[in-house]
Amino acid sequence: MPMATPRSEPPPPPQPCTPLLADQNYVVLSPPSCSHSQRRRTTILATTLILTLLAATFSAFVLWPSDPSLKIVRLRLNKVQVHTRPRVTIDVSMSVTIKVQNVDVYAMDYEALEVAVGYRGRRLGQATFQQGYVRALGSSYLDAEVEFNEVGVFSDVVLLLEDLAKGTVPFDTVTEVQGRLGFLVFQFPLQARVSCEVMVNTVNQTIFRHNCYE
């Protein structure tokens, strides 16, 4: 008996595509485009700002006032003498050449230059000299004579007599300058100082060693 062949059913008809509705709660934003001209303007602005800051820093470094520099160029002993009657006193005479150097870009007027001489930390006396002028980025030399007569050393009599017995007496000198730096309508006060330790030979009346520092 012949077998019955099953009939295949035709495939279902294709369903029409239903378009998806866009969700109204979402907004798609496209990233802004950065044009070449915008990048160039940003680079120029950043470069200009950096150069301006560098120029301002350099100008402040150059134009900001600095204190002058003092240097003892020459120091010579003219006389040192100790008197024991009626009381112990000392006479000191020195010649000193001082170099005042102006490191600023403006001229400097110094109002007073003072040289003081001391013995073992005690000031024996001081001398003040006239006003002066130093041009911008220049220097000026001043020759000064410092002389003190019959200065009492009551508190250091024993030490002074011991130094005289050795033939060497230690002195110290302090040189100070005070001035003003003029820039347009502004005035800037300036001050400089240099100290020296001086060893004097009382036998031949000479300075055999001195050490200066600022």
Rank of each mutant, 00 (worst) to 15 (best):
S155K: 15
V203Q: 10
F61W: 12
V151T: 09
I90Y: 00
L113I: 03
D143M: 13
I207P: 07
K166T: 13
P86K: 02
L137C: 11
V158F: 10
P14W: 00
V198S: 00
D91Y: 05
F183L: 14
D172F: 08
T89V: 06
L45E: 00
V200P: 07
F171V: 02
T48L: 15
F61I: 10
I98C: 08
N102Y: 02
C34T: 12
R135I: 04
T5N: 10
T173P: 06
C196L: 01
L77W: 02
V157D: 01
L20M: 09
T5H: 10
G138L: 08
A46S: 15
M94L: 15
C34W: 09
F188Y: 02
F183P: 04
Q15W: 06
D104A: 02
A112S: 14
T173Y: 05
T175W: 11
I44T: 09
V27N: 10
C34G: 04
T128K: 13
E111I: 13
V80H: 10
V27R: 14
P65G: 02
Y110G: 03
S140Q: 14
V203Y: 07
F171Y: 03
V203L: 11
D23V: 05
Q126C: 10
L53H: 05
Q81Y: 12
Y106K: 11
V62W: 09
Q101H: 05
L75V: 08
L181T: 01
V134Q: 02
